[in-house]
Design a protein around this nucleic acid. Structure first.
Length: 539
DNA sequence: CAGTGAGCGAGCTTCCGCTTGACTT
């Protein structure tokens, strides 16, 4: 018998089927050990850290030890990334007490071939990856646990907290709110002309911003006496590419925008869909899709909508900090609906449609730009107005997934055509303040800045709520009074922590640790001394 | 002797990231 260990129990079940009766396949359920919740858990002088078993994990380790004793070999197959390597490291330390034959294996796809390949190529733990996890973990601990108490003192409120992720996130929210508060709405006006051609009505606009409605009115009145004709018609083809398939951040953002689900709800539901076998792993930052599966979905598109709707599987460039362990989020099979309760079905439907859309043809558009000439006895020169048309020539992927495209239809027009004036009008517009973040747009913004990971996006928002920093009303995030004060205080006292680039600076150094070029303790010292004051570190 | 109240001291919060049940409310 052999033992094969992964992180997720759902994966374990699937892999058990592949490997058969010769294998015990077991799951760690994430991390085994972590710094203690209480106390710093790190010696500031030596950076020696105290790792303790997470609740329930002591028992789990005992079980894995019992099995390890019985088997000829143990394969540790936690996720192929920094955190997974750390799990493997602690696992091996415990299990090698009862079995010396332990190997580290990795896979990037849950297929029988990929799993068997991982066993063939099984080797050693990459200690540099483990070190980079130590550096990441300990830096987060030092920042969080040394700065939070300063907030308790300063604001006499022990519920407050600071951290590498939550504090810059809060800064985004507070700064946006200040922009909105300081925004001064300006009204401006366009002169609009309603015209008719062969009984069809359309409008053209004079492309000049008037600050004062009275100025605009003068022109409008002069145009009342004008003669209108088509000066030129310009037609251009355009296309709208299909959306990428879902990754965690996009799914949470879309479910928030289109279904009104808070990220936490989407997280829970997608986990359930995953456990029931309906979708792939729900915490991922990779757009990759299994080629064979993509073909199956394309066959589905061909059958349902015809060949002309079939697009292709695109290769998307991954962002820099992608850890490559998983595919995109997609249905496991091309089944359009599931016989489950409402909420699950709605979310599944969104994922199914998005997956299809990502493999479908572009939307073909026709953009028309019509210039209308107005000649009026009141003015020496003609005035030129613009009418814009947008027509969907081929609906492509929008057949299955909503697009933002709004058609603007114009009558059939050719240069020289005479037009009948219906009336002139003023169009009032206002400058728009930036909009508040929603839980979804905040997550997308954090992702763009490289702050946070797929498994934590929904908890970031939750933490900010729990600390009383934000309130969510009608899907939009509002910072509370204390949030403004805390951000100001942190900006003044811990500017590097509040720098949006901090995480990516840290990641660059962690990459060097992973390549074995830099000592992990040096990285911790460097950033800890830059972010925190010397007194705080007591060194 | 019982009840009251001042004064003192101890203990408590907190990070980010990986994964789900096993708990309590």
């Amino acid at each position: 018998m052999k033992l094969f260990i992964v992180e997720s129990p759902t994966k374990a079940k699937t892999i058990q089927k592949f490997l058969g009766k010769d294998f015990y396949v077991k799951a760690t359920l994430g991390h085994i050990k972590d710094l203690p919740e209480r106390g710093l858990g790190v010696d500031l002088k030596t950076l020696k850290a105290k790792y303790v078993y997470l609740r329930g994990k002591k028992k789990l380790i005992e079980e894995l030890k019992r099995l390890s004793k019985k088997v000829e070999i143990v394969y540790i197959c936690t996720d192929p990334d920094r955190e997974g390597e750390a799990i493997a490291y602690f696992l091996k330390k415990d299990l090698q007490k009862v079995n010396k034959n332990i190997k580290r294996a990795v896979f990037y796809e849950i297929t029988p071939a990929a799993i068997k390949e991982s066993i063939r190529n099984a080797g050693y733990i990459n200690i540099n990856l483990v070190y980079s996890q130590f550096a990441r973990r300990i830096l987060d601990r030092l920042i969080g646990y040394l700065i939070s108490p300063i907030l308790w003192k300063e604001f006499k409120n022990y519920r407050l907290s600071a951290g590498r992720v939550q504090s810059p996130a809060l800064r985004l929210i507070v700064e946006r709110e200040r922009e909105i508060q300081n925004f001064r709405v300006k009204k401006y006006y366009y002169v609009k002309v309603i015209l008719e051609k062969d009984g069809e009505i359309f409008h053209a606009i004079y492309d000049y911003r008037y600050e004062k409605p009275s100025d605009a009115k003068i022109i409008a009145e002069k145009l009342e006496k004008g003669f209108f004709s088509v000066y030129s018609v310009d037609i251009k083809e355009d296309k709208e590419y299909s959306p990428k398939p879902f990754i965690t951040s996009d799914l949470q953002a879309e479910a928030n925008a289109k279904l009104g689900f808070p990220p936490e709800k989407t997280q829970k539901l997608s986990q359930e869909l995953y456990e029931k076998g309906y979708i792939t792993y729900p915490r991922t930052d990779s757009y990759r899709m299994n080629e064979q599966k993509a073909k199956e979905f394309m066959n589905f598109i061909r059958r349902e909508f015809g060949e002309k709707y079939v697009g292709r599987l695109r290769n998307f460039r991954e962002k820099k900090n992608v850890q490559g362990a998983h595919e995109c989020i997609r249905p496991t099979k091309p089944i359009p609906t599931i016989p489950e309760r409402e909420e699950l079905r709605i979310l599944y439907d969104l994922i199914f449609r998005r997956t299809l859309a990502s493999l479908m043809k572009e939307i073909q558009l026709e953009r028309k730009k019509v210039i209308v000439e107005a000649i009026t006895p009141e003015l020496r020169r003609p005035i030129y107005l613009i009418a814009k048309g947008l027509k969907v020539v081929f609906d492509g992927w929008s057949r299955v997934y909503p697009s933002e495209i709004k058609e603007e239809l114009l009558p059939l027009l050719a240069a020289g055509d005479l037009l009948k004036l219906i009336k002139t009008d003023l169009e009032e517009r206002r400058t728009q303040p930036p909009s508040r973040y929603t839980e979804g747009t905040l997550i997308k913004t954090l992702e763009k800045l490289g702050i946070g990971r797929p498994s934590t996006y929904s908890t970031i928002v939750k933490t900010l709520k729990e600390r009383g920093y934000i309130k969510v009303k009608n899907k939009t995030i509002l910072p509370t009074h204390i949030a403004f004060e805390v951000v100001d205080f942190l900006m003044e006292n811990f500017p590097l922590l509040m720098d949006y680039k901090f995480t990516s600076l840290m990641e660059e150094k962690l990459d060097l640790v992973e390549e074995g070029k830099v000592d992990w303790k040096e990285v911790v010292y460097e950033f800890a001394s830059k972010v925190l004051s010397k007194e705080l570190l007591r060194i």
